[in-house]
Design a protein around this nucleic acid. Structure first.
Lengths: 226, 226
DNA sequence: CAGAACATTATTGTATACTAGAAAATGGGG
DNA sequence: CCCCATTTTCTAGTATACAATAATGTTCTG
């Protein structure tokens, strides 16, 4: 085992947060987590510090660490930045893509379509993330890829609700097709424009998000301080 | 004292790194820092974990924590992302700026020019950072502002390289003037174009080249500090 | 019964002690 | 003199003990 327990705990907590097991606003109790992972509080605390630094959790001095509960305006801001990073990635990807890249992306997109047509929401959701991750990588800028992935993960609990809105999955699929075609044709502007629309939450999707947000906030803020 | 020692140590280390007191690749010894700050290793370790998470330091399991020493290609990638965030900020700022914002920005820019004309390089750097920070804030997106500031700080030790490559401070000053005028005129495209040129080290085609080079080389040489 | 002051409890923050693994030192053989 | 194996030492990682403070409960007073 080359990886440190504290690092594994940090990653485990990140995953449990983005997958929704640890809901928005939930208190991350040090003693409880120590027992859960079978270690002392020390590595748990270090994991929590890192989560807080990454923005996934929020640390209140002498009060505890909580899964980040961004306000609606903060959420809108984060999606605005996310859109910009996605546009940058697809812009660079369109310019720098190799044929192998495009083939791989086409394959992922087909798998995505299969999940969509089979009505497998969970699988579509996973494959959708894969497509986006591939585009990040195709940008040829690994720092951008890492930052985009980080923000993507952080927004994941909120994006999931967005995708569950009726009809959104099909729209999303269509947009993927357009983006893929634009990359293949080297049509940078079309790729960017479609991507921005794909990510941006304002407009009709804005209300979808708001309802989802309120839904989330209603459930798990029982022990969240204010 | 409402702020925790661990948080203050983290911020102190960040400042000492971006100001160059703790040089690139320097080992951050836990015992040494404990003595320096008059605390035990525990809060020091927590501070180091956070620095590593933010990217300013790099943590090697059972070997120690070091001030991040990014490779040249990683630096190019980070500057490429920085350029995009700056462009986004100036795009939003141009659309959303109030007259008071523009006045304040003009004032900062004049102070910057004074330092430039006085040949006060250190002060020019500081005021230059202020101008950029003001533009981040003017974007009206506080999340973007925070992320831009974070990356700006992280790149601060390397920004002198940028000036060396580009030549003289005067060019940078001219670009500031053009950007400010574009914001005042509401000329979004001009503001963006100038800003991208202002930030990017050698231009996008150079970045494309580096990207392609990394593809060829497999980007696997990640040598570690001594 | 309401509310405030006090005592109690629980949890975070820090210090110290201990463990383990990697770098450095040592020493023997070529 | 150099190379490699062994030992030693040093530092990072973790556990535990303790201190400090916020949250909670209780009791006394009006």
């Amino acid at each position: 085992m080359t990886r440190l327990p504290s690092a594994k705990i940090r990653d485990s907590l990140e995953q449990r947060i983005v997958e929704g097991e640890l809901g928005i606003g939930k208190r991350l109790d040090e003693a409880e987590l120590s027992a859960h992972y079978g270690v002392s509080r020390t590595p748990v605390r270090e994991a929590l510090q890192r989560l807080a630094e990454s923005g996934l959790a929020e640390h209140l001095p002498r009060r505890g660490t909580f899964v980040s509960a961004p306000s609606l305006s903060e959420l809108v801001e984060m999606f605005e930045v996310m859109a910009e990073l996605e546009c940058m990635a697809v812009r660079l990807a369109t310019r720098r893509a190799t044929n192998a890249d495009i083939d791989a992306l086409t394959e992922s997109n087909e798998a995505c379509r299969a999940a969509f047509e089979a009505g497998d929401t969970k699988r579509y959701y996973e494959l959708n993330a894969t497509v986006h991750r591939q585009i990040y990588k195709m940008s040829g800028n690994s720092f951008l890829a890492a930052e985009a992935q980080r923000l993507h993960d952080r927004l994941r609990p909120f994006r999931r609700l967005q995708l569950r809105v009726r009809g959104r999955m099909g729209e999303s699929m269509d947009e993927h097709n357009i983006i893929l075609a634009a990359i293949r044709d080297g049509d940078v502007q079309k790729a960017i424009d479609t991507m921005r629309n794909h990510i941006t939450i304002l407009g009709e999707r804005f209300n979808d998000l708001v309802s989802g947000f309120n839904l989330l906030m209603g459930q798990n803020n029982k022990d969240k301080p204010s």
